[in-house]
Design a protein around this nucleic acid. Structure first.
Lengths: 140, 140
DNA sequence: AGATAAAAAGATATTTTTATCTTTTAATTG
DNA sequence: CAATTAAAAGATAAAAATATCTTTTTATCT
């Protein structure tokens, strides 16, 4: 439903949000998020290209969030690495359904929109603030 | 978001619902739904195993719906071929998050639940009834 | 019983996603 | 400038999803 890659991206950004002062390296993020290190490196790169985070090479380098955490939605993060594509046109390519999706695809699309809207309305800050005793990525 | 396989299953069931009197063969369904014939055969088989449809071999055989179309939800169909798995436990396997998901996974899960609920509340009848000029799977 | 129709089952292939490993490039520090 | 650190880039591998093709089994009809 949400790809592994998207889940990894969300973890990485939450991790960066929890440590927003200093750059974190791939290895550090991998340790906290439990994402395979080398795969994470690709995901982080996608987030850089998607302008969610920025990277700094060399000593004391690593990754930093670009956005304020209350401006950054889960949807934005997911979309940077693995767009949740809605149904824009008839999957069967029926001409008659071009402008108007049929009830089946409308309904599927609507259900996906609800999910999308929820993710659009959830900022990283929401996630950090809602954590009480259970802190994202933290064991205790 | 919804797998290709699930989309195919939905199309197949809608097709059967539109022709509920007589069994339709794989080839017939494939033609209407524009699903690759041999792949469809696997999907239909999964629907049989999932007790959504029944099959009849031999001459005049094919597939038939088992359920009344107003008892059958899109979710049930999708689940038979490609379960939309919600987040049941912490993907990081953090002990502290065992009973209580963290805010991140709660939120992802909640967004998936909305989608799931929409699909649970949509029956095949809803889909057929809502079609006015635009009929599912039909060109004109 | 024999011919035919159609699903079931199984084998193989292709594509996409996820994961790993290595080499290259860029930044920092002494 | 040399050494070190870390991201970027590229190459390869493994796994999962999707697709195709062939053979087998079961049912129907004459």
């Amino acid at each position: 439903m949400i790809s592994q890659t998207a889940e990894y991206a969300l973890r990485a950004v939450v991790c960066l949000a929890q440590n927003f002062e200093k750059p974190l390296t791939t290895v550090q993020i991998a340790n906290v998020t439990k994402v395979p290190e080398h795969y994470l490196s690709k995901v982080l790169h996608a987030l850089v290209k998607g302008a969610i985070i920025k990277s700094q090479r060399g000593l004391h380098g690593g990754y930093l969030l670009i956005h304020a955490i209350d401006q950054l939605s889960l949807w934005t993060i997911i979309n940077a690495v693995d767009p949740l594509k809605r149904i824009e046109s008839c999957p069967l390519k029926l001409g008659a359904h071009k402008t108007n999706l049929c009830a089946l695809h409308k309904k599927i699309n609507q259900s996906m929109k609800l999910m999308e809207d929820t993710l659009k309305n959830s900022t990283v800050r929401t996630i950090l603030d809602e954590s009480s005793l259970i802190i994202p990525l933290r064991e205790s």
